[in-house]
Design a binder for these strands. Structure first.
Lengths: 300, 300
DNA sequence: CAAAGCGGTGCAAAAAACGCACCGCTCTGG
DNA sequence: CCAGAGCGGTGCGTTTTTTGCACCGCTTTG
């Protein structure tokens, strides 16, 4: 679209880090691109790039402008899909940033169900830790985030929250498998695997363990991949920790999961949210409502 | 700004109702303007105007586009003032749509206090009934609305609410002046003035009166101007009804105001709000926070 | 039924954007 | 230490886009 041309060029320059590189990427002369940038800065009244010997970089004003650009082009995309909805077609794209735990069962089933009703809607799903998920929202790279215990929360608008007690996952013949509820100190006495420090499960375990001098999280295997940890249990008998929404026990009859005692470990909060103040595209907004009801159904 | 040119032309056409008239208004040839519109519709992929024999009119897609245009240019204005804030200057403009009751005392004092601290900030204040105030918000014509009991509320995001019991205002020597609290049936037995049907005070009085067959609101003088009604009391001894925030009794020692009994008449809700989901310009956002604290101080 | 007002179009002129060649500068690697 | 590479910026001729003018077909109106 014509009126977004300048913005696209500016985004290109930001991406490339220099005008010349950006010009090459976008099939235009460096001089022409340079003039576009300069003209825009003139009209805008403020410089938006710092000129460095090796290229250009956004200054604070440019950062603000970048946010406007992203908000603007995202809203324009929303407008287009809204207009195309007028003619009856139900189309759109939903982009989601989520914790790993949602990847194996919860999101696939929800998305499949939704696409069954609206086959024109496409999805992109990316695993992101809680910091990256928030950043993606504020960069308009994702519409929806579904993460455990996000950190900064200033641009994160919580649409739905759900408490999830941590479960200990072990083989059906594990000594602790007979208990309906597992005490943390018991679980930590057995060999266990755990995710690394930037995952909510680990943080909750650590804070709980720190309350008592006798307990410590000492994973024999540590990984950033929940997928790896889940499969590792098939080879060596270990306890792993996971939120129940990431579990589908019906498919693994040789594994059992038991909740950790809530008085030992605080439950994690699964938060469904979007960028504060943003108007989501119709498809994303609808799917978010679906997720809300799905989570409520799960809690009941 | 270059990238808003098309949008400005489109707004001009909407305002003028025909391409030729708009072209004249904006110092451009009709043919050039016509081609701009057509080119935009081509690139956009949808027509936005219905072509009528006497001119053009927005179609539904155009209505959606218009909203995007207004949101977009308002957000761009916000961006500019935010960037200019970076260089230290505190500037900006705050536009307010409010009920008449706020005009004489509350808003003037609040605005004066705010401008004492930020002399670079300008204001526009317009009295609007509760329907018009909401429309102004959604057209980005006002940043902030402060009204009693708005109606539709779908685009109105309530930032602060405050209950205001209706007061009966009368001369100090009025028979009811001795009571700390006035019953509605007593007040209605005396000659009274009242605002017309599209004001919250009147609606609340009517609904309260309807609960009893023995009461009716029969104003001897009816007006849309609170200013008129306030001054009319100086000429003929009548009860008028008003929210306390619109009163400043210290300046009129010969007048007294007594609250109507809450068990007779429901208090009105004064609502401070903005367009749902909109990011206000810095100046407006700050002033809104000031209003919130002022209202809280008033309630205490 | 003619005149006025509307959106749309062909064409030439005017304006804007572009590509090319080149400048001055800083950093870097032999 | 110095030459070369890479950067942003500029002058100029050329290309592309936009505009203005004249005019068309159409509908409404007095």
């Amino acid at each position: 679209m014509r009126h977004l041309k300048d913005f696209e060029f500016i985004e290109g320059v930001i991406r490339a880090g220099s005008i010349r590189k950006a010009a090459e990427d976008m099939n235009i002369t460096a001089s022409a691109l340079n003039r576009r940038i300069n003209r825009f800065e003139d009209e805008f009244g403020y410089e938006i790039f710092e000129r460095l010997p090796r290229g250009v970089r956004l200054n604070p004003a440019g950062e603000l402008l970048l946010h406007h650009i992203r908000a603007q082009s995202s809203d324009f995309a929303r407008l287009r899909s809204q207009v195309s909805d007028l003619s009856g077609v139900r189309r759109g794209h939903v982009s989601i940033a989520c914790s790993q735990a949602l990847l194996p069962y919860f999101l696939p089933s929800e998305i499949a169900r939704y696409r069954g009703e609206h086959p024109g809607v496409t999805f992109s799903v990316n695993a992101r830790d809680r910091v990256a998920a928030e950043r993606e929202l504020s960069e308009f790279a994702s519409d929806i985030a579904l993460v455990f215990e996000p950190l900064t929360m200033v641009d994160f608008e919580v649409v739905h929250a759900m408490a999830q007690p941590i479960h200990a996952v072990m083989r059906a013949d594990h000594p602790l498998a007979g208990q309906a509820e597992v005490r943390l100190r018991d679980a930590l006495r057995f060999p266990h695997v755990a995710p690394s420090e930037n995952f909510a499960v680990r943080v909750l375990l650590e804070t709980a363990a720190r309350r008592s001098s006798s307990m410590a999280v000492n994973p024999l295997v540590e990984s950033e991949s929940f997928d790896f940890m889940r499969h590792y249990g098939e080879w060596e008998d270990m306890i792993s920790f996971q939120f129940p929404i990431g579990l589908d026990m019906t498919r693994k009859p040789d594994l059992v999961s038991r909740p950790l005692a809530v008085r030992d470990v605080a439950p994690g909060n699964l938060l469904l949210g979007q960028l504060r103040g943003r108007t989501l595209p119709v498809a994303s907004a609808r799917f978010m409502r679906e997720l809300m009801t799905a989570l409520q159904r799960l809690a009941a």
